[in-house]
């Protein structure tokens, strides 16, 4: 893996954070400190995030769960530099890839071209691209659909192309916004394995948003529970289980149950607030 390390995108100092998780070479870290984000001004402003702090160690895998509308996508947008926080600092080390909640593929390009564009934009020489595209499409099991256009695919397949495109960026930090939401359970399980394999192989830092608590426990080192509007970190759970895990492991189910209870509390608290 070749990585070009770039300076920090945020304003915090780039002092090294402890590396956890395997494969730390060239990996990045995420730091969010007292970040607030409001949309609009004055009376009608929506406070999506309120003084949220969060840290993902270099090479770590953190999952973010929280009720719908609690600001998860907003946070990822801030981390990807697509938006600026109203208050506080975000810092992401190295190059960042963001996989949106929707596939956001370019409709005028074929599946292969969509993936290839990601390679082109990070200046991979033209000759090397086709082989890399093939490999990436193989990873998401879409090699046979290379020449189709996004509108010819099912929602789940589009999502997989987006995953391939995100992997193509070969970023130090991978932000994923409910990447497997549109998939059937079987495909999702297979892609969990793939994601875990790539994470072990490449050692990137991953922040993974999901509604599925089991999925969070299956994949992450740590699961953060966000409270609802305004979003804050309500609780964090370390996941101590050995890898590889399976989503149906009793350990996974057990911890997922515990986290779900906590998440429900948050949702209920939010519901009675209003």
């Amino acid at each position: 893996m070749t990585t070009v390390s770039e300076p920090f995108q945020g304003t915090s100092s780039p002092d090294g954070s402890p590396a956890s998780g395997p494969g730390t070479t060239g990996a990045g870290a995420i730091r969010v400190q007292g970040v607030s984000k409001a949309f609009g001004r004055g009376e009608g402003a929506v406070v999506a995030l309120d003084r949220i702090s969060l840290e993902v160690p270099t090479g770590g895998f953190v999952a973010l769960v929280g009720a719908s509308g609690c600001g998860k996508s907003t946070l990822l947008n801030l981390l990807a530099g697509l938006d600026t926080p109203t208050r506080g600092d975000v810092a992401v080390e190295g190059r960042t890839a963001l996989m949106f909640q929707e596939a956001a593929l370019f409709p005028w390009l074929t599946v292969a071209q969509n993936v290839s564009l990601a390679l082109k934009l990070r200046k991979v020489p033209k000759r090397q691209r086709p082989a890399m595209v093939d490999e990436l499409l193989d990873t998401v099991h879409l090699a046979d659909f290379a020449d189709k256009r996004p509108h010819e695919l099912s929602g789940g397949m589009r999502q997989r192309v987006a995953i391939a495109r995100a992997f193509a960026q070969d970023a130090d930090t991978l932000l994923m916004d409910e990447p497997f939401g549109a998939l059937d359970a079987m495909t999702r399980d297979l892609l969990h394995d793939e994601l875990e394999r790539l994470w072990v192989e490449r050692g990137f830092t991953c922040l993974f948003v999901t509604h599925n608590v089991r999925e969070a426990v299956r994949l992450a080192d740590r699961v953060e529970v966000l409270s609802s509007r305004p979003g804050r970190v309500a609780a964090g759970f370390d996941v101590p289980f050995d890898r590889p895990r399976r989503i149906e492991d009793p350990d996974v189910s057990g911890l997922a149950g515990e986290i779900t209870v906590r998440l429900r509390e948050e949702v209920r608290r939010h519901a009675t607030d209003h």
């Binding site: 949106f100 929707e102 956001a104 593929l105 005028w108 990601a118 990070r122 495109r165």
Partner: peptide
């Protein structure tokens, strides 16, 4: 806007963003 954001996340800025995202999307 989501396509422009996708382009920016892929690292397309300035002319590249126009060439690879905005102009094709305007077709």
């Amino acid at each position: 806007p989501i396509l422009v954001r996708a382009g920016r996340v892929l690292g397309a800025r300035g002319t590249n963003l126009w060439r690879h995202v905005i102009l094709p999307a305007a077709m």
